[in-house]
Write a protein that binds this DNA or RNA. Sequence first.
DNA 1: TTAATTTCTTAAGATATCTTAACTTCTAAT
DNA 2: ATTAGAAGTTAAGATATCTTAAGAAATTAA
Lengths: 189, 189
Amino acid sequence: MKNQLKTYLNRYVYFSDTEIDLIYSQLKEKTFKKKAFLLKESKVCKFNYFILKGLVRSFYIDEKGKEKITLFAIDNWWVTNTESFIKQTPSIQYIQAIEETTVLYLSKETLEILYNKCPKLERAFRIITENMLIANQRKSDVFLQMKSKERYNDFVKKLPDFIQRVPQYMIASYLEISPEYLSELRKPK
Amino acid sequence: MKNQLKTYLNRYVYFSDTEIDLIYSQLKEKTFKKKAFLLKESKVCKFNYFILKGLVRSFYIDEKGKEKITLFAIDNWWVTNTESFIKQTPSIQYIQAIEETTVLYLSKETLEILYNKCPKLERAFRIITENMLIANQRKSDVFLQMKSKERYNDFVKKLPDFIQRVPQYMIASYLEISPEYLSELRKPK
DNA sequence: TTAATTTCTTAAGATATCTTAACTTCTAAT
DNA sequence: ATTAGAAGTTAAGATATCTTAAGAAATTAA
């Protein structure tokens, strides 16, 4: 566990074992069963979760009562509801385990204490946040205004693992395509 | 100029005058005429720009040769092409002044030197980046899958200043609506 | 002020995508 | 193994939005 975190963090900034020990000592571990919620709508998102193993989705319910999936996250990704976690305001979204998922997690308060004790961690999160912004900008700038078929092809190409592990109707929701139409698009010929 | 930057940065982290002097000493100032480019497609985005006064847009050209606007930015916003600036890779997008625009700007290298000399600045940018991420997630999560009319109404409500200053066809592009259809939507009754 | 360019509007026909609803296939639980 | 629920497919009709094309209005330049 500690080693997985170390390998991950060292991709951004080099941390000594002592520093990793400090960070790790502040993290708690938990396993969520399939379909269990890490966060529910209207609750403040208290934690930032580092996924050791598993698969989760984030979604909200629109005016028509439909689930709209906004992200998937797997091993070695941080997942939280950024807005709710940063501002400590109620979340509009849910975070739910699609597979059994084991995480390390920490509160905003704990994270801020760590930033002060270990400025390198703040640098790591600055870089991680920049990367998340870049990924999200790709989604909003280009991805969402492609045609449905292009979005699906792009997703299959870039995230083939997810196609295996995530039900098709969830992929449709993430791609903002109705499940029926995605089914149509997948038809050969 | 220095004062405007100070007021802005102090919204995130408190900086002493000495620290502001250090930061300010590394920034250059420049004025772009209306329609001048801060960044052109295929070039590496060398700078992060802090807009003192003015209005710019970022856009790319799609396969059909149409301009797709991805953001507007005004006074007291940082603007750059995040992906190109962070990774120092060629940009797909342009950044262009819509009105005459005066900026302070600095290179990635300079910014990294400043992060080391003044860790508070790294904290400020960590927070600024978090806020940009939150704003962008709102766009990709909710905004882009609203109906065209809702997107327009939302934009009018949240950014009324832009309606005055930005030609309607540019707003249409940002909202991912054809200019003709936006014109239709705006018709009374 | 007039001409030139840019921006905005209107309308008709085309198309992508959604909705509904029924049916099939798959999966998980008894 | 059987059944109940979940997930995926199919097809017809509805609708949002785009495309094209032309003209009107507004800005900018001469």
